[in-house]
C-alpha cells in the first residue's frame, strides 16, 4: 500500500486556483523529488499536505497510510507522522528551541499513547542530534529561528525532523541557502533517516541535492500540474534544458 496517495488534487489560495489536478503516489521507503519553476505550486502542495489554513482543497483526495489526510487537523497530521520542513521557517520569539521541541515531541507521544519523555534523556538525545548537524548548544537555548541565518534555519528544520522521526517528510527547499558543508550535513541527516517504512518528498531547484539524496522518482510540477515524471536522470536533464519545454505542455 502506498504511504501517500494523491489523486486529482486541486486547491485554491486566496480564491486563486494553484493546484490543478495532481496525481502522486509514494510507496513506503521511497524518495520522490519535485522540481519546477517558481510559482508552479510546489509550496502550495506542501502546505495543503500539512493542512495550512487558507489553502482550500477544491477537488480530489489525499490518502495517507490508508486514512483521509484532508480530514485531519494540522496537529493530527503531524502526530500521524507527516512532517513539513518549511521553505521559510517561522520565527517564534520567546519560545526556546529546546522547549519547542519538547512540546512537539511530547504532543506526539501523548497522541500515540506513550508516556512523556524524561527531560534529561530528551536533552541528551537532542544534543547528540544537534551535534551531528553542527548546531551548537547555544542555538538550542535561543528562541526558535529568531536571528538565525538562512542556513541555520534550514539546519534547525532538519534537526526537528531528526527528533520527530516522521514517516513522511516533506522538505520544501531545505537545501536553499545552505553552504556546501551544511548541504552535506543535512543530506546525511536525511539519509540517516531513510528506511523501508519512511518516505520523503523533496522539493528542490537544484540537481546537486539529489546527488546526495538519491531519489527514486523525479516529478516536474508546472502551473499546478505534474507534467513529467522520471528517474533521477530527469533532474540532470532539467539542469541542462531548464523548464522551457514544460511550461507549454502545462498551458
Amino acid at each position: 500500500m502506498a504511504l501517500l496517495k494523491i489523486e486529482n488534487l486541486s486547491a485554491t489560495v486566496g480564491g486563486k486556483e494553484i493546484l490543478k489536478g495532481i496525481d502522486l503516489e509514494i510507496q513506503p521507503g521511497e524518495v520522490h523529488a519535485i522540481m519546477g519553476p517558481n510559482g508552479s505550486g510546489k509550496s502550495t502542495l506542501s502546505y495543503v499536505l500539512a493542512g495550512r489554513p487558507g489553502y482550500e482543497v477544491t477537488g480530489g483526495s489525499v490518502t495517507y497510510d490508508g486514512k483521509n489526510l484532508l480530514d485531519m487537523a494540522p496537529e493530527e497530521r503531524a502526530c500521524e507522522g507527516v512532517f513539513l520542513a518549511f521553505q521559510y521557517p517561522v520565527e517564534l520569539p520567546g519560545v526556546a528551541n529546546t522547549t519547542f521541541l519538547k512540546h512537539a515531541l511530547n504532543a506526539r507521544r501523548k497522541f500515540l499513547g506513550e508516556a512523556e519523555l524524561d527531560a534529561l534523556e530528551f536533552v541528551k538525545a537532542l544534543r547528540k542530534k544537534a551535534k551531528e548537524l553542527n548546531i551548537p548548544d547555544e542555538m538550542l537555548k535561543r528562541p526558535v529561528n529568531v536571528g538565525f541565518s538562512g542556513g541555520e534555519k534550514k539546519r534547525n528544520e532538519t534537526l526537528q525532523m531528526a527528533i520527530l522521526e516522521p514517516r513522511l517528510a516533506i522538505l520544501d527547499e531545505t537545501d536553499s541557502g545552505l553552504d556546501i558543508d551544511a548541504l552535506k550535513l543535512v543530506s546525511e541527516g536525511v539519509n540517516a533517516l531513510r528506511s523501508a517504512d519512511r518516505s520523503f518528498l523533496v522539493i528542490t531547484h537544484y540537481q546537486r541535492l539529489l546527488d546526495y539524496i538519491v531519489p527514486d522518482k523525479v516529478h516536474v510540477l508546472s502551473a499546478g500540474r505534474i507534467v513529467k515524471t522520471g528517474g533521477k536522470e530527469l533532474a540532470l536533464e532539467l539542469e541542462k534544458t531548464g523548464y522551457a519545454g514544460y511550461e507549454d505542455e502545462a498551458a
Binding site: C79, G94, F100, A107, F111, Q160, L164
Partner: peptide, 25 residues
Amino acid sequence: EDQLFYLRARGIPEPQARALLTQSF
C-alpha cells in the same frame, strides 16, 4: 497565524499552541 500554524504543524494542539504563543509574548 503563521506562528500558530508552525506550532500545529509540529503536532502541538491548537489550544496549547495559542497558550504557548501568548505566554512567550
